[in-house]
Design a protein around this nucleic acid. Structure first.
Lengths: 339, 339
DNA sequence: TCAGATTGCGCAAACGTTTGCGCAACTTTA
DNA sequence: TAAAGTTGCGCAAACGTTTGCGCAATCTGA
């Protein structure tokens, strides 16, 4: 890399250049800028004025080296196939901005997370990490544990290390079952997810146990693969059943799968909710669209993200704090898909 | 912050600790790890072995201070209301991972970008920035220009500074018009976006100019607000027209608006494409769903992102390179919504 | 055999910010 | 008046990695 390829870049203002201008030590500049009471008001105003005049912007990377805090949180997102992650990303970004943090995308997508990718958490000295993904949890979580990086899983249950903030999935499943039973439904279909995620298992458990309490059981149970296409295929499979075998109510464990089911039923000219009631889980904005009008359990995402950041911040300040495991109740949103 | 709140953290391996173990200078460790030929194979193998044994992970922040390269790219995303940004984020993350870069989310959402947020680009020493958002471009773009940070806009046209990679929006509009005219459509509706974005303007220009070439013109032009709900309302408005005033073909300038239009037409029992043909623009995965079967112009997103990274990398290496403005042709995907 | 070239390092400084400690000057209290 | 306390700094080192330069040892070619 010869110098003809890198023309001289004008140097930006630094703590040192400001200290020269002000005739003070660099440490005085730092202390004045952070409002340290050990610096007189006169000196502080002088330095603040120079900083503004010269467009001083701190080098956070250098600061991290000294202070040990980067102001970065790592973010691991799950598959693009569930719009829930988009909602989560936008909400997390919004809140982080307000709190003065930044999100570093460590991974996004359904594939395996590579070691070198997870190690970026350490290489970039993140202050903490938010993981919202089932399959990918283990490697990134291990690295966080080994290196004392605070970890919060959102909508996932941490197995051995780290905090989590989740929705009360089981209670949500119970509520959907109750609603359907109260509406007179008697044959039940479940569109589930074969993954090992506790989120799905709990939703199913809640639903099924409530049915059993009422002396009822599932008539149909189909893997919806956690995505729209799987839900659509499940809807097609159900539509193809003889009428006497068809469920009169379907619970899809996520909104995106429920939308696939609804679309398939519509194209098969099955009326919702007259012929079959449908409910989902998540509370995506798109579930409110008139074309879906989906009954769902809305996850309290803004508050979940807020709690996640609080948990991370507390553990950045005091790493000895014990892990907290928070579950928040979702809200039943009754719409036309259940009648 | 007293020491009772921060129990002694085991120190991680550093270049210095490895150099002590190997009995060499720290600079030798660095050079061995990066494969510098000035270090003998024997010494290199010794150091590589120790690094692996001790789980050495470089501190990228410290490296950035020395080398001037952070391996970070800033990312500014537009509104959550267009799923196109989700596609872009996932594709960008995937490619960045493969290239060994990381994405720092600077902003995501439709609101104004705050100064302090845009300054994070500089504070975190990003090697470059990708912006994919109309409204928010100016402030972040200014900061990039002032600080010599390479900038690429994706699907946006940079006004004065920075490269862009965009789709040939105008040609896409032309193709949609041609298809509709060839299919015998004679009354045309446009669902546009009132924003100042050149992307929308070009799509409309292409469409309208081709109509005019054929001696035709728009019968209906409705603002779809760049989101699903706007498209839905436009669809409702069109459905409410007397039959002789209704268009027999609608071009919505984005897929998400087209989906709103399609849903509104369906709920109004208007048949697509028999009564009205509908086309969109973007090539979202959801446009292929049987329930939509949407004819659209597919943006070559993977290749656009690839080019964006190439442009950024080239300008990180040689900041004197002139800005490049790249337009790539989208691909016409003909589906059932146009007959 | 000698001079020049090559190999394989180490030294020292740089990058920008922060923090602990100590000192001088000033103020307050006994 | 002297001692103790307070204020307002500066010095020096730390954080982890990289890069330019130079030196000693070894090799090669004339």
């Amino acid at each position: 890399m010869s110098s003809i390829l890198t023309p001289p870049a004008p140097r930006r203002a630094t703590v040192v250049t400001l200290s020269e201008l002000a005739g003070v030590a660099p440490s005085t500049v730092t202390r004045a800028l952070k409002g340290d009471t050990r610096i007189s008001k006169k000196t502080r105003d002088l330095i603040l004025g120079l900083a503004k005049e010269h467009g001083y912007m701190p080098n956070v990377l250098a600061r991290t080296l000294s202070s040990g805090k980067s102001g970065l949180y790592g973010l691991v997102l799950g598959s693009a196939e569930n719009p829930f992650y988009l909602e989560l990303l936008y909400e997390a970004t919004r809140q982080a901005e307000k709190l003065g943090f930044r999100l570093l995308i460590i991974h996004a997508g359904g594939g395996p997370i590579e070691d070198i990718t997870a190690q970026a958490l350490i290489q970039y000295q993140v202050d903490g990490c938010i993981i919202s993904s089932a399959i990918l949890s283990s490697r990134a979580a291990e690295i966080c544990a080994q290196n004392n990086v605070p970890l919060v899983m959102v909508n996932r249950v941490a197995l051995a290390h780290g905090c989590f903030v989740t929705c009360d999935n089981r209670a949500g499943g119970v509520e959907i079952a109750r609603l359907m039973i109260a509406r007179g439904r008697r044959r039940f279909g479940l569109v589930y997810t074969a993954s090992s995620s506790s989120t799905s298992r709990e939703r199913e458990e809640g639903f099924v146990s409530e049915l059993e309490q009422a002396g009822l059981k599932l008539a149909v149970r189909i893997d919806g693969h956690s995505n729209y296409d799987g839900g659509y295929a499940a809807g097609q499979e159900i539509a193809a059943l003889p009428a006497h075998e068809r469920p009169d109510a379907i619970f899809a464990l996520s909104d995106i799968m429920a939308m696939g089911v609804l679309d398939a039923l519509r194209l098969a000219s099955i009326n919702v909710p007259e012929d079959i009631a449908v409910a989902g889980f998540d509370g995506l904005p798109s579930s409110a669209r008139p074309i879906y009008d989906l009954t769902t359990i809305q996850q309290p995402l803004p508050l979940m993200i807020q709690r996640a950041f609080e948990l991370l911040q507390a553990r950045t300040l005091d790493p000895s704090l014990p892990d907290e495991l928070i579950a928040m109740r979702g809200k039943l949103i009754i719409r036309g898909s259940c009648g």
